[in-house]
């Protein structure tokens, strides 16, 4: 639909760009100079773009090591925090009428490949394949825009201005607080984020956080001797821990994806620059040859006279 609509416009556009050249046929030399100038302009703009992508790549590379360090730290932190639930074999309580809270950890900034859209797609797929009453909390503007197009009714909260720097635990705590202030009673809280496999690949995964009922009903819960009073604290704290883990890992994935995307962009720009330089030189040579031919013809013609 879009391509069909775009095509006439494109054709009109290409006609419009060709028109000056065809109109300038009488002044043949001028037309050649114009295309030469056009190629030069394009070459220049591509070079500028390459400079920008190169700089962004360097920035992302320097940020990457910091982000990865934060990620490994937060991962061990989150795993330790969730070890309690693993040992207690906590499972979400099965009930029909309770809601599921889905927290999507993306960020505000783009230009990093398919990080955000992959996350949104995974969220949508989950909502389709495991139908339940979902409420969605979106962290980051990019996924917010995408989810608000497909499931605007499900969104209850959105956070932004994240992803400027490595996420701090204070961020995670504040988000966890705001989430725990939500009026709904959620049987399950699923935190969705991009897991870091290696520098090249990542995939969206979910992390579970539990409500108090699920924790108390887990099989090995008594082994830990947790008082009822501190149970709510533990739940809030573990939610913040999990969120911190998800945010830090998602951030590392984003930075590494941005590095890769900018690396590719720089390479592509380099290819285009090569192509255009050859074209530019050829055209320039053609113009010079043409001029020479004209001069020589003129000279020989006047000699004969």
């Amino acid at each position: 639909m879009l391509s069909r609509a775009a095509r006439p416009a494109l054709r009109a556009g290409s006609v419009a760009t060709f028109r000056p050249a065809t109109a300038a046929v009488p002044a043949f030399q001028n037309a050649n100079y114009a295309t030469l100038r056009e190629i030069e302009g394009r070459l220049k703009s591509i070079k500028n773009i390459q400079k920008i992508t190169k700089t962004m790549k360097i920035v992302a590379s320097t940020k990457l090591s910091k982000a990865q360090r934060a990620m490994t730290e937060s991962r061990s932190y989150g795993k330790t925090s969730n070890a309690v639930f693993d040992e207690a074999e906590t499972k979400p309580v099965e009930s029909e009428n309770k809601k599921v809270l889905l927290v999507i950890c993306s960020s505000d900034k783009g230009l990093c490949g398919g990080v955000h859209s992959g996350l949104s797609r995974a969220a949508r797929r989950m909502m389709n394949e495991e139908p339940a009453d979902y409420d969605v909390v979106v962290i980051g503007d990019k996924s917010k825009a995408q989810i608000s197009r497909s499931n605007p009714k499900d969104i209850v909260l959105s956070f932004n201005s994240i992803g400027k720097d490595v996420p701090s635990f204070a961020d995670a705590q504040a988000i966890a607080d705001q989430i725990s202030l939500l009026p709904g009673d959620y049987a399950q809280t699923k935190i969705m984020y991009n897991q870091f496999d290696n520098a090249q690949s990542y995939h969206p995964v979910t992390l579970e956080a539990y409500d108090e009922e699920s924790i108390t009903q887990s099989p090995n819960f008594t082994a830990f001797e947790i008082d009822d009073e501190v149970l709510a604290n533990m739940r809030e704290y573990s939610l913040a821990n999990s969120l911190y883990w998800a945010l830090a890992e998602g951030h590392a994935v984003e930075i590494s994806a941005r590095r890769n995307a900018m690396d590719n962009a720089t390479k592509n720009a380099g290819e285009m620059i090569d192509k255009f330089t050859i074209l530019y030189n050829r055209t320039r040579q053609a113009v010079i040859t043409g001029e020479l031919v004209e001069i020589i013809t003129g000279a020989t013609a006047s000699e004969d006279m």
């Binding site: 608000s148 605007p152 009714k153 969104i155 209850v156 909260l157 959105s158 956070f159 932004n160 201005s161 994240i162 400027k164 701090s168 635990f169 204070a170 961020d171 504040a174 988000i175 705001q178």
Partner: peptide, 15 residues
């Protein structure tokens, strides 16, 4: 490390 500048918005009925 303690700085937090997040902003948030509540959503109601898709708005």
């Amino acid at each position: 490390r303690g700085e937090m500048e997040l902003r948030f918005a509540r959503w109601e009925n898709g708005k």
